[in-house]
């Protein structure tokens, strides 16, 4: 240890690491630990009642189901968009490319009211679907629409750099061995993209699970039908049920940590396969 310290030429190690650890602890780690301390103060029955009541379970099903479906939709269309943006030239491509990140930059509340305006009965898309008896806003389909919106950039932005980096030699080799374009895509390009695609999918899913702002306007928030888990936490807080809110939050936190580990693993896999971090 002493030898490594002597070898340090650059100053500021103690100061920068010390500040990093103190700031991280004060803002993130200590407040987050409060969730687990509060949960630990509950009896197992109290905890189980809070996290497994029918209304809460219905919210898990909606939150995770809609998040999974939204991430899957974004995996398909995100791959399509990434392919179109890297492989083809077409008018307006730069604008499409620049606006892909809109869901990162647009405040979620703004997205929520805008989507509601479009998909409500008298909205631009809602009024087109109304004659067919399809209702998007104020029900579970609205939740799906909002979660699809906020997850849109993830797959595009993880797949795009890999596609740009992919050397043309592989596809040339495939073509010279007699493969058609679809075979080359399926056997050569897709396996190279797959880790990044999965990473983008996981990121979109993780983001969707915790999303609140864009969903609550369009969901209708009907208990047992279109109520997401983050809203359950808010509702419990408004009823001064701090323990119940914290118990549900602890479930969400554990799932978030788990998803974070999966995403880290996927990113390491992508880096090993492509030599590039995403």
């Amino acid at each position: 240890m002493a030898r490594t310290i002597n070898k340090r030429v650059l100053p500021g190690f103690g100061l920068s690491l010390g500040f990093t650890l103190v700031y991280l602890s004060l803002i993130v780690l200590i407040p987050l630990s409060a969730v687990f301390f509060k949960t630990a103060s509950m009896t197992p029955e109290q905890f189980w009642q809070a996290v497994a009541s029918p209304r809460v379970v219905a919210s898990y099903k909606l939150t995770f189901g809609a998040s999974l479906l939204a991430a899957a939709i974004n995996a398909v269309f995100g791959l399509l968009l990434a392919w179109g943006l890297t492989r083809y030239t077409f008018p307006g491509r730069k604008i499409v490319d620049a606006l892909i990140d809109l869901p990162f930059a647009l405040p979620t509340a703004v997205a929520g009211i805008a989507l509601t305006a479009i998909y409500a009965k008298n909205g631009w898309i809602g009024s087109l679907l109304e004659p067919f008896g399809i209702q998007i806003a104020f029900g579970p389909p609205g939740v799906l629409v909002a979660l699809t919106f906020i997850g849109l950039p993830f797959v595009v932005r993880t797949v795009q750099p890999i596609l740009e980096d992919l050397e043309t030699e592989y596809e040339e080799a495939a073509a010279s061995l007699g493969a058609n374009r679809w075979q080359a895509f399926q056997r050569v390009v897709f396996p190279a993209l797959f880790p990044a695609l999965l990473t983008g999918f996981a990121l979109a899913f993780a983001r969707a699970v915790g999303e609140y702002g864009s969903v609550i306007f369009i969901a209708g928030n009907i208990p047992m039908v279109s109520e997401i888990t983050p809203l359950i936490i808010i509702t419990k807080l408004e009823q001064f049920d701090y323990k119940g809110a914290t118990a549900v939050a602890s479930v969400m936190l554990v799932i978030s940590f788990f998803l974070l580990l999966i995403v880290n693993g996927l990113q390491a896999w992508t880096a090993r396969r492509t030599g590039r971090t995403v």
């Binding site: 987050l32 983050p230 809110a245 974070l260």
Partner: peptide, 21 residues
């Protein structure tokens, strides 16, 4: 990994933790 943690925490939970403190 810990620095990235706030990205994977639901915004609602982020508010809640300061209520608890």
């Amino acid at each position: 990994t810990l620095i990235d943690l706030p990205f994977s925490v639901s915004p609602v939970v982020a508010g809640l933790i300061y209520m608890l403190v």
